[in-house]
């Protein structure tokens, strides 16, 4: 998925927390992949965590809602809750203060 960073731009570190293979989870995965490829192609890292498989990570990363996309880097940390269908909002939040 990840490609070596070709530009000097900061690398996006993203974690998507989902709960099982529901339609909502699938939508979220699809939305985030699409958005990342389109916007940050080559300089992002996306990890998908199913909290049914790894419940301890939901605790460790303070997840209460699914789906949640956590942008770990660049700072500040942002949490996008929902299926990420509101692309404009996600993008706005991603770009916000990220340079």
């Amino acid at each position: 998925m990840t490609k070596p960073a070709a530009t000097s731009r900061k690398k996006y570190q993203l974690r998507l927390f989902i709960a099982g293979a529901t339609q909502r989870s699938m939508n979220a995965i699809q939305n985030v992949r699409h958005l990342c490829e389109e916007q940050f192609s080559g300089h992002y890292q996306l990890e998908i965590i199913d909290i049914y498989q790894q419940p301890a990570r939901a605790c460790a990363e303070q997840i209460i809602v699914t789906p949640t996309l956590v942008k770990q880097a660049p700072l500040p940390v942002r949490r996008f809750i929902g299926d990420l269908s509101d692309t404009a909002r996600v993008l706005g939040g991603m770009r916000h203060e990220s340079h």
Binding site: F17, A19, G20, R24, N27, A28, N31, I51, A58, I63, I64, V65, T66, P67, T68, L69, R78, R79, F80, I81, G82, D83, L84, S85, D86, R89, V90, G92, G93
Partner: peptide
């Protein structure tokens, strides 16, 4: 937190 669509408290 930014709300971007449907969610639940499953976590």
């Amino acid at each position: 937190i930014e709300e971007t669509g449907e969610y639940d408290l499953e976590a």
